[in-house]
Design a protein around this nucleic acid. Structure first.
Lengths: 339, 339
DNA sequence: CTGAAAGCGCTAACAA
DNA sequence: TTGTTAGCGCTTTCAG
């Protein structure tokens, strides 16, 4: 490897002090335009690249954000990563990923270590970690800067980004009602995953709004997985008075519904309408393709990283920080109820 | 944040020198057991955590590995990340993710920057980046340590990990032949993605081995995506003498085949057998569930990280470094040919 | 607007 | 087996 130029080399070549070079590199004010150009030329000539480790040690910041998640959906995680990274790159930050177990005993300690070792300057939490009270509490106490995606509790703890997904669940339910369905099955999300379970509230609100009585047998407890969706669907379809539409709290479970219906020879969407939530890749790779809700995950994560960086710069961030909109995607799996 | 203890504090409390503490922390030899314990006690008492930035600067290594990828399959990327991270954690490393564009002009420069800024000590390249000659060349020249997953070219450049996936493609084709299929359509992978396109060789070898003449019209050029798979399927199914089985080079394209067949009212697997490759989540979320090939991706990535860390420690790594085995998963989408 | 000096917290090289 | 002395390459502080 070619010997790397240091800030001293640049300073010498430009005929200025180290500090001036530092100012130019960091876009600090108080440098004459002419000086700035001279330094820029020297930097270019030497192909100088600041050492991150030296910067980190001296400035006591790593210029790295940590992304925490415990989510089995690969597409969700990839989207969050992509959004966060896009912002990071623009701002000169890198992203350290840190998958973990939301039910681990040592979760808080493990995460605090990241900050204590000065590996990350701040953290982005995604559901269901956004709602782990102990973790949130621990970060607040240790004064580690962080932002959350889709938290449902203790929203004052830190800035956050969320969507109107409860409203979208309401709209989706209304759409099914408009199609003439009166018996709409619902598959709830994993109890530990608040952001998903709250979609249930949208379902309930829509029923109430339309004066439909709430039938407890139409609601099944799922666990966000394909298999759990399939099991819930089996129970719903076994009902003497089975639903004509099933709304699952996420796409994986909705896919389970569709597969279970296929195996029973139920024609979709004519005999059964199915709706999901998330617009994961499976939603359009399945037959019939799934009517679902798309959240702007990439944008949310980008916004979250943006808020975090703002926070790191000491700027105050007003809360609630950002609420973004979901969109219903009507595809093949929903249909007018049959007489 | 509580004032963090430094190595000096530990040394003072333990009544030894800074260097001895350093030795204990880094598990270096030449410390008496008693001293080691004394230091360990002091570390525990102060809850001392070494600063990564200071370590990085002094030792000139970041203890961070970089993971490079340009792969649209979320599940593939997540699996690679999981495998690499598992190894990293055991070895005290962190993982920086770096998605990029394999056809970008500045790819090599951009990647070299990561190493030059001392952000990463070494890199893991995944397909299709494993086969970007300029990038590989650039890393070799800059003496940046790296390992590759599933490279097909210039294998002497660095250690690598691969699977016997060409053999698996051969086996899968044989399996279809055994089921009585003689007209087996094949959907090739994206030309830029060598690791996928080479599966075609397995298909060809199986035909040859079984004395089946090669029919050019049965082979379609796909681009790894669901949509391209669907388009290829449409062309194959439009053939006057359409195939009774279609083998797609990956699951996304196979899913496209299944959906296209559904829309044409073709009963699967009775009228058409479909096989894929990769065992992505869609493979079992689709109807009929997909017969496919599972590569041990998590293990491969773990092994790759292991090799890289070995390399960083100056140990020599023999090449070819590791070849891992694929497994065919027979599910619902393949069936005896109909008379 | 610019610069000199003093570290950041650790490891490396060398002594003892 | 242990300790001492120098830095690593930057940013910060404070002086000009």
């Amino acid at each position: 490897m070619v010997a790397k130029a240091t800030i001293d080399d640049v300073a010498a070549l430009a005929g200025v002090s180290m500090k001036t070079v530092s100012r130019v590199v960091n876009n600090e004010p108080n440098v004459r335009a002419a000086t700035r150009e001279k330094v820029a030329a020297a930097i270019a000539a030497l192909d100088y690249r600041p050492s991150q480790s030296a910067r980190s040690l001296a400035a006591n910041r790593s210029y790295v954000l940590g992304l925490l998640y415990d989510n089995p959906s690969a597409s969700y995680v990839i989207d969050v990563q992509a959004g966060a990274l896009a912002t990071c790159r623009r701002a000169g930050y890198d992203l350290l990923i840190h998958p973990c177990k939301h039910d681990s005993e040592e979760l808080t300690q493990e995460v605090l270590l990241l900050a204590r070792q000065s590996r990350v300057d701040g953290l982005i939490l995604t559901p269901p970690l956004s709602d782990i009270a102990e973790l949130v509490q621990g970060l607040v106490e240790a004064q580690v800067p962080f932002v959350r995606l889709s938290p449902t509790e203790n929203k004052a703890a830190c800035p956050y980004v969320q969507t109107n997904d409860q409203e979208a669940a309401y709209d989706m339910t209304c759409k099914l009602l408009e199609l003439g369905h009166t018996r709409i099955g619902f598959i709830a999300g994993h109890p530990d995953h608040k952001a998903v379970t709250e979609r249930y509230l949208g379902y309930l609100a829509a029923l109430k709004e339309n004066d439909l009585r709430y039938d407890r047998t139409l609601v099944e407890q799922g666990y966000n997985s394909f298999d759990s969706g399939r099991e819930c669907a089996a129970r719903l379809l076994d009902l003497p008075d089975a639903p004509t539409a099933i709304f699952a709290s996420n796409d994986d479970m909705a896919a389970g519904v569709i597969i279970e219906a296929h195996h029973r020879g139920i024609a979709m969407p004519v005999e059964l309408s199915v709706a999901g939530f998330d617009d994961t890749p499976v939603a359009h790779q399945i037959f019939p393709s799934l009517t679902t809700v798309r959240q702007p995950i990439v944008e949310m994560a980008g916004k979250a990283a943006e808020l975090l960086i703002k926070l790191l710069k000491g700027k105050s961030v007003q809360m609630p920080a950002a609420i973004m909109s979901c969109r219903i995607l009507e595809r093949e799996s929903t249909h007018q109820v049959q007489p």
